[in-house]
Write a protein that binds this DNA or RNA. Sequence first.
DNA 1: TTTGCAGGATTTGTCAGACAAGCTGACAAA
DNA 2: TTTGTCAGCTTGTCTGACAAATCCTGCAAA
Lengths: 248, 248
Amino acid sequence: MPSPIPPIESALSELPRTTGLSAMLAGRLATSIRAGEFQPGDRLPTEKQLVERYAVSRAVVREAIARLKTDGFVETRQGAGAFVALKPGLANFRIAEPGLLDAADLAHVFELRGVVEVGMAELAAERRSAADLAALNAAFARMEQALQSDENGAAADDDFHAAVATAAHNPYLAQFAAFLAQHFSATRALTWQPAARSSGGTAAAQAEHRALLDAITQGDAQAAGVAARRHIAQAAGRYRVADRKHKG
Amino acid sequence: MPSPIPPIESALSELPRTTGLSAMLAGRLATSIRAGEFQPGDRLPTEKQLVERYAVSRAVVREAIARLKTDGFVETRQGAGAFVALKPGLANFRIAEPGLLDAADLAHVFELRGVVEVGMAELAAERRSAADLAALNAAFARMEQALQSDENGAAADDDFHAAVATAAHNPYLAQFAAFLAQHFSATRALTWQPAARSSGGTAAAQAEHRALLDAITQGDAQAAGVAARRHIAQAAGRYRVADRKHKG
DNA sequence: TTTGCAGGATTTGTCAGACAAGCTGACAAA
DNA sequence: TTTGTCAGCTTGTCTGACAAATCCTGCAAA
């Protein structure tokens, strides 16, 4: 490597920058609100104070606060100030963009995804139709083929999980699972990368898929829940390992 | 009535937004996108064009577009322009207003809520702190008192479930549970109505609360999950009965 | 002392202009 | 044809200013 990249000295430098200063500031304020640093009804610092504290222009501050407004976290009154909403964030459920989540947030979101996937697997075992089973087996077969021919089975992996969602016969559950899953597309891609294949991670994931498929086929809700729980836990483990390798 | 208010003749007058030009413009553009006037991937007019067309400043246009960005309707690239998102609306998870859901949708949302509540109860049993247990017991005691004195314990009921959410120590999970729960405020109110009291429904619900509290106190995740599952199922049953009485 | 009001200070909403950063397409050179 | 350069355009950010709404303080009146 050539000369080291000089550190960016900024009040916002700790947040990974994906798109824009205002997104960073909005994420930072939202985290503060979620953490209880600002209580519902509390007044936020004025735009002027935020400008000084974060060393950005007022336009950036206003755009960040506008973002929090549309998220339902804050309400503003002209002449009075910006206040934390009585029920922050209850207007709609949103998660910050993947790049803006720190490790703790990511773990929490992943945990939420696990809860949903487990419940979905249990329901799928109870309700799967013949067509559902056919779709599950087809996706599983494609993953099996990809595993043996060293192809990328990420698409088949996605299809398999989508088939589980369909088999649960609850559109809201499926939509929410898809919503959460999109934050972890990198995780699923990791499963099918060379590093995972050589270390046996890909084969292990496929074994977990088989356990889940079997449980759903047999209509064993409890076993399906256990299998899904294990799959998610293992995926989290694989992700952490890869993350550590990437950083170190 | 005095003289009628003269209509505001403006390019933005048709949207009945409460406050703010940017909110008006954002609503107008969002409507255009939903109506298919702009297809996914299409490029929106430039800021300059929007400034001229709607006779507002660039700050207003930028704030409106920022709002659409956070809603997941558009994406912007510096130097290139603003584009309608490929999958508009997947940036956040919304549920239609309670009144607009039919019975089947409501059942599905209720089921999703059940999945989340069960997972939350399990985590609460594993992670509850002394302070969490104190809050749980306090809310439970208030429900108990309300039960015996024929008062309305709906607020205490809410607090109890909120305490469970806090005890799970996952802000995203808690926020999502609260987000779903607000669609069923009527259900919780039903538990404490005279009809439920006379039929023993209120006492039954309190027994379920006790089972959940005991499981969390003892740190028994599996028992907590079972208790939560039963509570949700019973609540669904009570809701259906009341719904039938209401309609028939 | 208490109440009511006027007026200044504060804060958000909007406007205008400027420069920086990044993209696109055309054109010349190889 | 391919490649490199560059000019123009678009979004991102900064600065300054004024309007509109609210809050606060002090003073006069009851």
